[in-house]
């Protein structure tokens, strides 16, 4: 199971970070063990390329599985998931970029699979990769505007004289429903916050009651 891999992998995290920090001190590799899920290793954006090269030569991570970009209000995080099939190891490297000018060195000279992955990351989130051999969009058309997976993305109105979201084809009911759900969620969050501010301990009781309600709802 993946869980057993995680527990087996735990002692390895420190060896990775120690080795990286010894060879490339400016990478500042750190990790924080997470209780659920996988633990990423954080590194500085400027040293992504040397760290990847080091991990490949030193620890035999000969496969780059995927590059994930994730948009946060104040930063863009890019994760590199590397794998070693001979020793059955896996590691998640994570780096933070600024939202206004996200630039990072390309690793496509280390792994060829990075070529498409980086193109997708650029297409979806607008992260620029230095020294990329083919920096084009991959899934959207070349003259598409904006980066769809950014949280503040708004679809352009027209694309080459075509209306992108014509009203006749929009599912307005679905949209209204989603907006309603979102408003409800925001309301609940605000309520929970005020409750938590008012009294710390009774909040737990309230939560338990809510959970019970959920269970009953499931049965009925």
């Amino acid at each position: 199971m993946n869980d057993s891999f995680v527990t087996n992998g735990w002692p390895m995290f420190s060896t990775y970070t120690d080795s990286i920090n010894k060879m490339i001190p400016e990478a500042k590799a750190i990790y924080e063990l997470r209780e659920v899920g996988d633990t990423p290793i954080d590194i500085e954006a400027e040293s992504v390329h040397p760290v990847c090269q080091h991990l490949k030569t030193q620890f035999g991570f000969h496969v780059l599985e995927v590059i994930t970009g994730c948009d946060y209000p104040d930063r863009i995080e890019v994760s590199y998931i590397l794998a070693n099939f001979t020793d059955n190891q896996e590691v998640i490297l994570k780096t933070k970029l600024s939202r206004e000018n996200p630039v990072v060195d390309s690793v496509s000279d280390i792994w060829s699979s990075a070529n498409f992955q980086e193109r997708e990351c650029f297409d979806m989130l607008g992260v620029h990769f230095n020294n990329h051999p083919d920096p084009r969009r991959i899934l959207c058309p070349d003259d598409w505007e904006g980066f769809p997976l950014r949280k503040d993305y708004k679809t352009q109105e027209r694309y080459r004289h075509m209306i992108v979201n014509p009203e006749s084809k929009m599912n307005i009911e679905d949209r209204e429903f989603a907006n309603k759900q979102k408003a409800l969620e925001a309301k609940q969050k605000a309520l929970e916050k005020t409750k938590a501010d008012a009294m710390a301990e009774p909040k737990k009781v309230a939560e338990i009651v809510e959970d019970k309600k959920d269970d009953q709802g499931e049965k009925s």
């Binding site: 993946n2 997470r34 209780e35 659920v36 899920g37 996988d38 990423p40 599985e65 995927v66 998931i81 896996e90 998640i92 959970d211 959920d214 269970d215 709802g217 499931e218």
Partner: peptide
């Protein structure tokens, strides 16, 4: 649970 809420974190599976 009826309303599934995942704990904060990440996973690659």
């Amino acid at each position: 649970a009826k309303n599934i809420k995942l704990p904060a974190g990440e996973i690659y599976s």
